[in-house]
């Protein structure tokens, strides 16, 4: 999978690249508008991460440019601008997703995965992970072909964990992912403990390998030994 990161903050671009690279993603970085336009014109990417505030131009123009040259790269906007108007404008101009800074890399990662899945959608939308298969359309989960019943939150938690396979996820990243728009209203992240416990229990009951590991002081990890 090829990803282009158009972001003028070199440090941020680098840390995104390093997080994604360890998951078989090939990342390229453009630090300004000009090189961003060049790269999207000459190459094809599965996903473009686009910052709107670039020193030599408006990121929105890159959206327009992609539309003009009929490219269908998936685009995720990463921006400090968080107004509804901004989001709507970006979506109207062909963006697929919008993440407001600051964000967790794990969140960005599952968004990229979801975007690529949508782009490559060929009739079925099933994630297979060893003995677990997840049907994203039917929202159903099978372990060893036996369906298990998860709540909506548990389902999302499982997807988030599997998506960030072998990564340590901080409690705040999980909590914010599960809360969506309401993340700002969280006072603490303790509520995820109950969801993790229940998910673990349900997976164990259907003889699933215990992938969910607790990382002390930090959070949790979906570990595939």
């Amino acid at each position: 999978m090829k990803i282009l990161i158009i972001e003028d903050e070199v440090e941020l671009a680098k840390s995104i690249a390093s997080y994604l690279s360890s998951n078989d993603f090939i990342c390229e970085i453009a630090n300004d508008y000009k090189s961003g336009i060049e790269k999207v014109s000459f190459y094809n990417y599965d996903c473009v991460l686009l910052d709107l505030n670039l020193p030599d131009g408006d990121g929105i123009e890159i959206l327009n440019h992609l539309k003009q040259i009929h490219k269908t790269d998936g685009i995720i906007i990463i921006s400090a601008k968080e107004t509804l108007e901004n989001r709507i404008e970006c979506f109207q101009k062909g963006a697929d997703d919008y993440l407001t800074k600051p964000f967790h890399l794990s969140e960005l990662f599952v968004r990229i995965q979801a975007l690529i899945r949508r782009k490559n959608f060929k009739g079925s939308n099933i994630i297979q992970f060893n003995e677990i298969s997840i049907d994203l359309l039917a929202k159903s989960i099978f372990v060893h072909t036996i369906e298990i019943d998860l709540t909506k939150k548990e389902f999302e938690l499982l997807l988030f964990l599997i998506g960030n396979n072998n990564k340590v996820l901080s409690k705040s990243a999980i909590a914010e992912h599960l809360s969506g728009d309401m993340a700002d209203m969280l006072d603490n992240h303790d509520f995820i403990y109950a969801h993790i416990k229940n998910l673990k229990k349900k997976l164990n009951e259907s003889h699933c390998t215990d992938y969910i590991k607790t990382v002390y002081g930090l959070g949790y990890k979906w570990q595939n030994d």
């Binding site: 440090e11 995104i16 997080y19 400090a80 407001t100 800074k101 890399l105």
Partner: peptide, 22 residues
């Protein structure tokens, strides 16, 4: 917001280090 994003992303990377002490 941008410096915060950088801190956040480094923290997310930092916790991936395999040999962190408790």
């Amino acid at each position: 917001q941008t410096p915060l994003a950088i801190i956040q992303s480094y923290l997310d990377s930092l916790i991936q280090q395999p040999d962190l002490t408790l």
